[in-house]
Amino acid sequence: MQARTSTAEETTIGTGVEGAPALPPRISWGAVIAGGVVAVAIGALLNLLGLAVGATTIDPATPGDTPSASLLAKAGGLWLLLANLIGLGIGGWVAARLSGTSDDTDGLLHGLAVWALGFLLSAVLLGNLAAGAANTAVQGASSVLGGAMQGAGQAVGQAAQAVAPDAARSVDPNALAERLQSALQSGGDPRAMTPDQRRAEITRIIGERVRQGGFLGNQRDRLSQLVAAEANIPAEEANNRIGQLETQAREAAAQAEQAARQAAEKAADAAATGAYWLFAAMLLGAGAAVLGARLGTRREVGLRSYA
Rank of each mutant, 00 (worst) to 15 (best):
A275P: 00
G35T: 06
A134K: 12
G274C: 00
L180F: 07
G16V: 14
N218L: 08
E178A: 15
A280K: 05
P190Q: 13
R169F: 01
W79S: 09
T136D: 10
V40C: 07
L112F: 06
L46W: 02
V17T: 11
R191V: 10
S170H: 05
A131N: 13
N239W: 01
A164Q: 12
I27M: 10
L88A: 11
Q212I: 02
A183W: 06
L126H: 04
E237D: 12
A270G: 09
Q154F: 02
G153Y: 05
E236D: 14
V37I: 15
G214W: 02
A141S: 07
A167I: 06
S122H: 07
P195A: 01
G30E: 02
A293N: 03
I233G: 03
R304E: 13
G140D: 11
E265S: 11
S70R: 10
A55K: 13
R26V: 11
T203Q: 12
W79K: 05
T101I: 05
A137S: 11
T247W: 00
A31I: 04
E230D: 14
E265I: 02
G207T: 09
G54M: 15
G146L: 10
A270V: 06
W115D: 10
G302D: 05
S142N: 13
V114G: 05
Q158I: 00
N84R: 11
L98G: 04
L126E: 03
A113G: 14
V37H: 01
L226E: 03
D104M: 12
A263M: 09
A229I: 03
T101M: 04
L216H: 12
D221M: 02
A113K: 09
A52F: 07
T105A: 10
I206L: 15
A271E: 13
G76N: 14
L125A: 14
N47K: 06
S305A: 11
M193H: 02
V38Y: 00
R241A: 08
I42Q: 03
G214K: 10
Q212G: 07
A256S: 11
A155D: 05
V144L: 14
A229V: 05
E265L: 12
E178W: 00
L125S: 13
L117F: 06
A116I: 15
T7V: 08
A22V: 15
E10W: 06
E300I: 14
T136W: 04
